[in-house]
């Protein structure tokens, strides 16, 4: 390796370090896209993903590059990666309840299965992960355990975001006791509740 190649590889390392590839992972309908939108809106002034009550709204990876976030006097560049929700089953008949036609439901189911596979493959391309969980749901779901176990196995820093804390049945303590070795921050991505604290925890996790 010549001197210039050596210099280039050093610069490349710094280039990778400069922008943090931040993945948003979690089960279906936990609010990953709502949180991605909140972050994008706060720092770029525009949303990045569509949200809906119909499961599997996000069926492909969405990336927003060069999102400059500032917190506690520090500044970091992020590439936000919004991923489809991880699931172990997809039944097109579940979509019929949301008044989708049979062909639309089947198409959505097919795309949803591909989305899950894509999301898993993208685990290779993230530096840090926000595991977004619905604070009103049981955190002991195997999907949550699998995602967090995988990130631990890959030594990827994790911040657990307990979303939907504006709802009465939200229970952050339950999430904290399910995953005691991780930092958990409660937010409402939709209403922006506790979002400043979320950014502080994010910087603490990335560091």
């Amino acid at each position: 390796m010549g001197f210039f190649d050596y210099l280039k590889s050093i610069l490349k390392i710094f280039q990778i370090k400069k922008t943090v590839r931040l993945g948003l992972y979690g089960p279906v309908n936990a609010g990953k896209s709502s949180l991605a939108n909140k972050i994008s809106l706060d720092w770029l002034g525009e949303e990045m993903s569509e949200v809906s009550k119909i499961p599997h709204e996000t069926r492909e990876i969405k990336v927003k590059e060069k999102v400059k976030i500032r917190s506690s006097g520090k500044e970091l560049d992020f590439n936000l990666i919004d991923t489809p929700g991880i699931a172990t089953k997809v039944d097109y008949e579940d979509f019929l309840k949301y008044k989708l036609s049979k062909s639309e439901a089947k198409k959505r189911a097919k795309e949803a299965t591909q989305g899950v596979i894509e999301a898993i493959k993208w685990l290779e391309n993230v530096d840090c992960v926000l595991v977004v969980l619905d604070a009103t749901e049981n955190p002991y779901d195997q999907v949550n355990v699998t995602i967090i176990g995988n990130l631990a196995a890959r030594n990827i820093p994790v911040l657990i975001v307990a979303n939907k804390i504006d709802l009465k049945s939200a229970n952050i303590k339950r999430i904290e006791s399910a995953f005691p070795q991780y930092n958990v921050v409660g937010v409402s991505a939709l209403k922006g509740t506790n979002i400043e604290n979320f950014y502080k925890e994010l910087f603490r996790t990335v560091r």
Binding site: V90, V116, I117, I120, Q142, T146, G149, N150
Partner: peptide, 28 residues
């Protein structure tokens, strides 16, 4: 299963979903 095997199981499950097979439930 190891965490890697669990994700492999999810990937393979998704690839196998069709008219009859809707996926799995799993708990360790």
């Amino acid at each position: 299963l190891s965490p890697e095997e669990e994700t492999l199981l999810i990937e393979r499950t998704m690839s196998n979903i069709d008219r009859r097979f809707k996926g799995i439930e799993i708990c360790s």
